[in-house]
Design a protein around this nucleic acid. Structure first.
Lengths: 251, 251
DNA sequence: TTCATCTAATTATCATATCTATCTGACTTT
DNA sequence: AAAGTCAGATAGATATGATAATTAGATGAA
């Protein structure tokens, strides 16, 4: 094809830009190249040199280098003199980086990805609920309750269903009082955002609120085993739905 | 104090340098500044401007900017015109980034951190073992067996205990066939490397090999519940040890 | 073949200049 | 007063051109 790559300018892209912070040439280029890598645009093609990248996107080499450096920090690239810049295998990407997650979901969505997501959630969230039952402060327990209240309100149309769901699950993570668990904020939010389109279509979520309440009640009673089981049931249901959908898709 | 910061040169630091790839000025500066941030050197002090950083470390502004950009990509910094560069709260650091992990462990080690580590492992690894029991390929099962064999050899002094332990646990993660689980390679390796000094001192690990073998056997038999329980027992023991150690340390 | 050496390509670094966003404070307007 | 407008100062953002360092690959000798 050899289509011309449109030049990056501060005016062009900021609207559709999706990245952690800032809106300037460097972050714009980070976004464009990161997305291109994730969708596999360079899988069978050599990655361009610094100079080529700069020319193609109409920016200076300094900006190009900074964007490339950020992508190496996220594990997508590596650069060496003479060898050039090369795309790293997916196994070394920082999948928990929120930019990488967004690129993956935006352009590379698949039911398999959703299953991988939820296979992780079924490990993390029940344990987080168990920790929260033991260690959460009163304020953190209240936040979980508030999330549940929002879900009830959403049922009646007074709040956003997705936002309420995310608030609940994030509050549980926060209640674990473990910084590593809190890291899964973005991941859980993304998983919920993508799976809501999915699960809604397959099955009504009327039972969902009662399941969430079971988690909350167990946490309030400081019943860590109960919280773990209730949360596991909640996510296990989603996994089953996904499994069925996958089988259906194949036949 | 106002001590003079030694200039970064390609000759000075490569020996003690700890970072993902490359050994040049940019990566050296990344390492130096990253470590300084993690140990809290800038908690009560304003972070220097680009120009100051460059001058203090004896490198150009381009190198400084690239290092800063990498640190923003890892979530440690953010930069805005006029406001300057500022250290982000720890909640937005990418804790699963292997550089960040190393900085944390090297300079900011604490029993609490070790407990947080293992609270995460107790969520991840049992579920990974369960997945491996269901989905691992023959080659992946063999790799788990090989890890166990190395542990037995290490018992007899024919292999490195730590390396063998890591090999086993990493092989289980690989067997999960889920890219998100595989991301915990570095984390598990770090956790084992730091906890081995610890657990060894408290209690002999003679029973450890039998516990590992139980995991392996369950995976071979495709018994996912058995694998999950066996792995949970394995890490649960470590958590108990740490909990006791913390109580002892406080008294 | 095998090893050492050279060459060229590509990243790495530097220095400098200019541009742009943003804060501050003074001034003006209403 | 309260709100709007302008000027200066500051710090990051971008561009550019030159030079250094690294190393894959070609070349050539043993």
């Amino acid at each position: 094809m050899n289509r011309k790559v449109s030049a990056i300018t501060t005016d062009t892209f900021p609207s559709e830009m999706r990245t952690s912070l800032g809106r300037n040439l460097t972050y714009g280029m980070l976004d464009v190249i990161g997305r291109a890598i994730v969708i596999g645009e360079y899988d069978n093609v050599a990655f361009p040199t610094e100079a080529e990248l700069a020319r193609k996107h109409g920016v200076s080499r300094a900006v190009t280098r900074e964007a490339v450096k950020m992508l190496t920090a996220k594990g997508l690239l590596s650069a060496r003199p003479r060898q050039g810049t090369i795309v790293q295998p997916q196994s070394s990407w920082n999948l928990f980086d929120s930019d990488v997650l967004h690129w993956l979901l935006e352009r590379k969505f698949s039911v398999e990805l959703l299953r991988h997501f939820n296979q992780l959630r079924v490990a993390i969230e029940p344990e987080a609920a168990a920790l929260a039952a033991m260690q959460a402060t009163d304020a953190e327990r209240a936040a979980i309750g508030a999330g549940l209240a929002r879900m009830v309100a959403a049922e009646a149309g007074a709040d956003n269903t997705l936002a309420a769901d995310i608030a609940f699950h994030v509050a549980v993570l926060e209640g674990s009082r473990n910084p590593f668990y809190k890291q899964f904020r973005d991941m859980v939010a993304s998983a919920l955002a993508t799976s809501i389109h999915f699960t809604n279509r397959i099955k009504g979520r009327s039972a969902s609120i009662e399941d969430h309440r079971a988690v909350y009640d167990a946490i309030l009673k400081r019943d860590s085993d109960g919280a773990r089981c209730a949360m596991r049931r909640l996510i296990g249901d989603v996994l089953i739905l996904i499994g069925e959908a996958e089988v259906t898709a194949k036949s």
